[in-house]
Nucleic acid binder design. Structure first.
Lengths: 199, 199
DNA sequence: TTTTACTTGACACTTAGTATCATTTTTAAT
DNA sequence: ATTAAAAATGATACTAAGTGTCAAGTAAAA
């Protein structure tokens, strides 16, 4: 039994799909900044107005999967168990799980990356989006530390250090065309971090 | 002997000063997003065209000191000496020096922060600007490690962890109205980091 | 079938930023 | 002091993102 929405719902889903396909095609060939919403709407054979009913901005097409990914990451964080009761180890488990997930959607990610680096504006936005992941880590550490004002700050500091590391590993992975093992690089980088800064 | 520029130069400097004063006044009272370049130009009694000859964008007024600050930081990084030959310690010295500098311009910074948080757009841009500091740290670590491909990556990871920490400390300082000791907070946070992640 | 709810296209508007051109102002040379 | 070159300004027109509104069309429910 296949669940078909109403005709209206199916039409909407289809329009959205076409928007995404055509927009991505244009972004990849011309670069994000050289594509106007007018162009996208024309390719999708609808009006410019309609585009803004489906996406709140031009870049929203590019970042359409962001929220879902953050949700997945949060789920991995909260369900992560460590063998040794150490918080950092649990975060590490979640991060490596997420790395595995990212490897499984590398085609999608590679395409997205190509679009992002085509525009200084998108690069900035991308950095901004990363904050959601960092905040998720911070929240998780805070919870596991048991709450309290002092721990909130402590959690933020640790999370920013951890995610700074993660971001760098990911950038490196993208730069190399997602060919290397993200899990292995991630593990190595986290080892470097956990070893401390006595150098 | 006072060095007076030409009449032209003095006029230009004055127009720029007026632009900054009026723009900042408007940003502080109405919030960045509610101020148009038209408004600023009107307050400065010049045309909108002229504004864009002095600043390449509206936000450039807010971030007008960014480059100079990065330059100062780089200088502090390259001249930092540690007692024990450890790279992390030299970076720490530079960071604490910079914290001292920031304490000395806290009024300017507090004003800037108030404007930045008035606009989601500026908050994003601010995060972007921070990358310049992170890259400066990365460069410095890389140089001190003696170059090489492997060290480039290593330097990036360490720099992102360090700067993630720094950013969090600064945010906390700003949130508290720049009243606490940035140097002390910075030292504590760096200690937390250097202790490693074995928890 | 008819009423109601939703979707769309057309249009007007605001604002940042770019580009051009004529006018004014400053500077340098005679 | 006069004039020619260089630079700053204002006016104007343009592109493009994003917002808001309204009337017409289409699907859903009665």
């Amino acid at each position: 039994m296949v669940k078909t929405g109403s005709l209206r719902d199916r039409k909407k889903a289809n329009v959205k799909k076409i928007f995404i396909e055509e927009a991505v095609k244009l972004f990849l060939t011309k670069g994000f900044d050289k594509v106007t919403v007018e162009d996208i709407a024309a390719k999708a054979s609808v009006s410019r107005s309609t585009f803004f009913r489906y996406f709140k901005s031009k870049e929203a097409v590019v970042f359409r999967n962001h929220h879902a990914r953050v949700a997945i990451f949060k789920e991995m964080l909260s369900s992560a168990k460590s063998n040794n009761e150490k918080i950092f180890d649990a975060i590490r488990v979640a991060l490596l799980n997420f790395a595995k997930y990212y490897e499984s959607i590398k085609d999608e990610l590679r395409e997205e990356y190509k679009i992002v680096v085509s525009s200084p504006y998108l690069i900035a936005k991308d950095i901004e989006k990363d904050r959601d992941f960092e905040e998720a880590i911070s929240e998780e550490i805070y919870k596991r530390l048991g709450g309290g004002q002092q721990n909130r700050y402590r959690a933020k500091i640790l999370a920013s250090a951890i995610f700074g590391t993660v971001r760098t590993v990911m950038e490196d992975w993208f730069e190399g065309g997602c060919k290397s093992s993200l899990i292995k690089s991630g593990r190595d980088a986290l080892d470097l971090l956990s070893g401390g800064f006595d150098w």
